[in-house]
């Protein structure tokens, strides 16, 4: 169990010189990774899910996933509708309509939806983990339940948004390409099968899971590592930047692994 936050103060006026700053930063990153791993272990432990924890997790899932679900889905449907239409019409004008559907699936479903779902959940204003890590609340079941509930809720929200938006985008792409009929189901299925080979499918699922874990585990880990006095001031911009950087790194690695 995590016992305390024992990191030194790093005020701007008494920060160490450059070599020490780098070492300090590296040590902080290692500490964040360690805390995130601890939270992951907590979330993966069945013993963490007591009755109150399950209730809190359900509440957090409702707050984190259900509330933004409708807005995000509507917004993403509108965006995907415009993008799909542009791609379809452009490809058709160049005589490349056979590749348009594959491109739409590859770009929107595989690449953009998981990233945007993670950003929508991770950067939402209400996702302030300091509420669970405030002051001296590092010990005890309430803190543990709160962290587990919030992390699980954030990860579930990312998965829910990505999955539901992906399904709606696939449906939108089909309707754009073939209209309200079933005659194009074979071609559409073949295009989906051509895009989602084993590597792409595993990459897509793995990337979505990593995004979920990042959004779920990174904010409480950062808040735990952060000093208690700055935690009270709310979520820091550096936390958001760190999460954004990590998400982009995951996306870049996934793209490199698949296309390079």
């Amino acid at each position: 169990m995590i016992t305390s936050c024992t990191h030194p103060h790093d005020r701007p006026h008494d920060r160490p010189i450059a070599p020490f700053r780098v070492a300090d930063r590296l040590r902080q990153i290692a500490e964040v990774m360690h805390r995130a791993a601890l939270i992951l272990v907590l979330c993966a432990s069945p013993s963490s899910y007591t009755t109150s924890c399950r209730r809190e997790a359900a509440r957090q899932i409702c707050l984190a996933a259900l509330r933004p679900l409708v807005a995000f889905t509507l917004l993403w449907t509108l965006v995907s509708l415009v993008l799909i239409r542009i791609v379809m019409v452009t490809a058709q004008s160049y005589g490349l309509s056979a590749f348009a559907l594959e491109m739409v699936i590859r770009v929107l479903v595989v690449e953009l939806i998981p990233l945007f779902a993670a950003l929508a959940i991770g950067l939402r204003p209400s996702a302030d983990p300091t509420a669970a890590t405030h002051a001296t609340a590092w010990l005890g079941n309430a803190w543990r339940e709160s962290v587990v509930a919030r992390s699980v809720a954030a990860a579930t929200a990312v998965m829910a948004l990505a999955t539901i938006s992906g399904a709606i985008t696939l449906l939108t792409a089909y309707l754009n390409a073939f209209g309200f009929s079933l005659w194009g189901l074979g071609d559409f299925t073949r295009s989906v099968g051509q895009v989602f080979n084993l590597a792409t499918t595993l990459g897509f699922l793995g990337k979505t899971v990593l995004f979920s874990l990042t959004v779920g585990m990174l904010p409480p880990a950062l808040a735990m590592v952060r000093r208690a006095d700055t935690a009270a001031s709310g979520r820091r911009v550096s936390d958001l930047a760190a999460m954004l950087l990590l998400l982009v790194m995951i996306e870049t690695i996934a793209l490199s692994a698949q296309y390079v």
Partner: peptide, 28 residues
Amino acid sequence: MSEPPLIDDRATPAHAEVKATLLITVVV
């Protein structure tokens, strides 16, 4: 050490567990 109350000013949604279970079921 006494456990501090969780800070959350939002009300608990109605039938939160049912909704969460439904959402997870749909996602899975």
